[in-house]
Computed example of a mutant assay.
Amino acid sequence: MTVSGQRTCAENVAATAPTQGQRQHETITIKTPLPIGWGSFCSNPSKENPGCWYATAPWDADTLNYEFNLDGDDALEQTVTAETWQGLHAVVQRQVERHKRITGVQA
Rank of each mutant, 00 (worst) to 15 (best):
G5N: 09
W59Q: 02
H89V: 04
L64E: 07
S4W: 01
C52S: 11
P45I: 10
G37D: 12
T27I: 13
H99M: 05
Q95L: 01
T56G: 06
V80P: 04
V80F: 07
T2P: 00
D71C: 11
R101I: 07
P18W: 02
T2N: 07
N44S: 12
A107W: 08
A15E: 11
M1P: 12
Q78S: 14
N65E: 06
T16D: 13
Q93R: 14
G5V: 10
Y66N: 03
W59H: 01
Y66P: 00
C9Q: 03
K100P: 00
T27S: 08
T81C: 13
V3G: 00
R98E: 01
T103F: 03
C52E: 15
Y66A: 08
R7C: 01
L88P: 01
V92P: 01
N44L: 12
I102N: 05
Q93T: 15
W53C: 09
T79E: 14
L76G: 10
A14T: 05
D71R: 14
D73N: 07
V91F: 08
A17W: 04
A75L: 08
D62V: 04
A14Y: 01
E67H: 06
G51L: 07
W59R: 05
V91P: 06
A14W: 04
E77M: 12
M1A: 14
E83N: 10
Q22F: 00
P45R: 11
S43D: 15
G104P: 06
T29P: 07
V80G: 09
F68I: 02
W53S: 08
R101V: 10
W38T: 09
E26N: 06
V91D: 05
C42Q: 15
Q95Y: 00
C52P: 00
T81M: 13
P18F: 05
T81H: 07
Q22H: 04
D73P: 05
K100N: 08
K100L: 10
I28H: 03
Q106K: 10
T8D: 00
I36W: 10
L76R: 09
P50M: 02
M1D: 12
W85G: 05
A75R: 15
N69M: 05
I28W: 09
F68A: 03
A90F: 03
R101W: 11
W38E: 10
C9S: 03
T79D: 05
T27C: 03
L76S: 04
H89S: 09
R101A: 15
G72E: 08
W59D: 04
E26W: 01
C9W: 07
H25G: 01
R23W: 06
N69Q: 11
V105L: 13
K31Y: 09
R98T: 09
K31V: 02
L34F: 12
N69H: 11
A55K: 07
G39F: 04
R23E: 09
H25Q: 11
L88I: 05
Y66C: 04
R23P: 00
C42R: 15
Q6D: 12
P18L: 07
W59A: 01
Q106S: 11
Y54N: 14
V105C: 12
F41M: 07
P50I: 03
